[in-house]
Amino acid sequence: MTSNPLPLNISRFGGCTLTGALSVTTQVRDTVTIVHGPKGCTHHNFSLLHATGLDNDRVTLPDLISTGLVESDIIFGGEGALERTLDAVAKRNIGAIFVLSTCIVDSIGDDVAAVCRRNRGVPVLPVPSGGFLGGTFQNGMNNALNAIADTAEPCQKGWCVNIIGEKNLEYEVEENCAEVTRLLTALGISVNLRFLRDCSMIDITRLGAARLNILRDDDLRTVGERLHQRFATPFISSFPVGLAGTNDFLESVADSFGVKNLRAVREEKVLQEEILTEFKDITGTSITFDPALTDSDTFKIACEVADRIDITIDRDGCRVPLEISPPVGTAGVRRMLHRWRRAIHA
């Protein structure tokens, strides 16, 4: 095992469960998230969410409250601090309170769920997020999505889809959503709910109205299955990635809605050819990637794109950037090619 923080071992390097849960709960506007732990954990995440928010041109800061555990709470138990904080926050006029645990709280054995059960006149949703004890960043995200989904009830279906589990800390989160929306629009289908990005508790009541759920990626499969079970909504397990993958996505969504898709796919293929033509000047070059990513889905998409544009992948080629997440849709491939061209011409 290495201490290199590259994402080679997801159990250790999969990020903080608390951060994953916060990336979801802080997207619900009329709520407060209590982080039960030392205030450093809250500051770290507050600062991180602030930074990623600014990257996405959002200046609004999340409402996080730390129970502010200190050494004496660690010794004698922190449930009293959580009680006091919950009582104070419940007096506010808010839609719900999320209570997120931290690894120190799970280590000392505070019964967070029991403290949250007491009726305070406002929904209190505990989300298991005990840092490494709870698993990875993805576990935190999934736990939060599931906890919030449980507040919605089944309702009448519409001609629409939900987008499930966007990576809210991703730099290009809005661009990825815009690309999926563009493809859906080509099929005449609208987005019902971005579950969860910038919405209110009332918006979440519409969760069951979609005819199809589109998961951000396959790591959200357990969430997709739970939503299927609860709302009878089938799911597609990933955003469209790569060129062929984008066309497959269009076909899958169309099939799910029982609509004809020939025109949309044909037009997408034309668009893809036009984009590849834009990058003719790098045809015939040779590129290479970060070796740590050669087993990733991104690598497969990169190979597909390189093949389509007659670029050779060679260990001695020009090192081009590759993100951990594959490029979303045709627009994502185009942005990736721009970065390759910059590196090749550098």
Binding site: T42, H43, S66, V70
Partner: peptide, 15 residues
């Protein structure tokens, strides 16, 4: 009040 809303300063470990 022990709780702190959106703490603004990092912890000792970061220091």
């Amino acid at each position: 009040m022990p709780e702190c809303e959106n703490p603004l300063w990092p912890c000792a470990m970061t220091g």
